[in-house]
Amino acid sequence: MILQGENIVKQYQHDRGIINALDHVSFTVNNGDFVTVTGPSGSGKSTLLLSLFGLIRLTSGNIIFEGHRIDNISDRKLTDIRKKSVGYILQSFALIPYLTTLQNVMVPLMLEKISGKEQVKRAAEILDYIGLSDRMEHLPRELSAGQQQRVAIARSIVHKPRLIMADEPTGNLDPALSLEILEFLKKINQENKITIIMVTHSPVAAGYGTMKLHLNEGKIVIGNS
């Protein structure tokens, strides 16, 4: 077991009352799982993903990561966990526009204050692994959408995280590119034993899951606990 959620509640205050974005959500993720989170728009998928490592603070509930509670620890400690143990992939790629492919992939290593030489070596290795070694000096805008998402994946794994959080990683890609990305994620999951939690509303993507959560109006409809 790598990650566990117990009775997670997240409420948003609105003019027209309180919204229960997450309503007593409980689940368990085991090491090496490929978790898919599905559900209609507004069902709380992104909120769940962001709340797991403190990017959104919970209203109530516990989150246990590698045996320790992390829902009640300081922002600084959560930041440190994200830096060392988690990789994020977003629908919009979120690459830094003025950095080259290589530099973008080096960012997580820079945050960990790894030496420059080592940064280049490891980033280049990952780009090679992901098939982009001929695009190292390109800026994001000089890459296709599929290539940009591969750079984002490279960036999310370069620091050898134990978990990858992906929020609709194929949402901006056409079906062929989506498959390519999904295959990469599967490869990462299987070859590197990195646990993946992926939000998606595509049935094809959901098919890659070894563990499936389905949310509706903030509640888990299909899942475990």
Partner: peptide, 16 residues
Amino acid sequence: KREIGILRMMGAERRT
């Protein structure tokens, strides 16, 4: 803004 967001997400501290 997005860049700041992604950096913080990846574990950049406020200090950074």
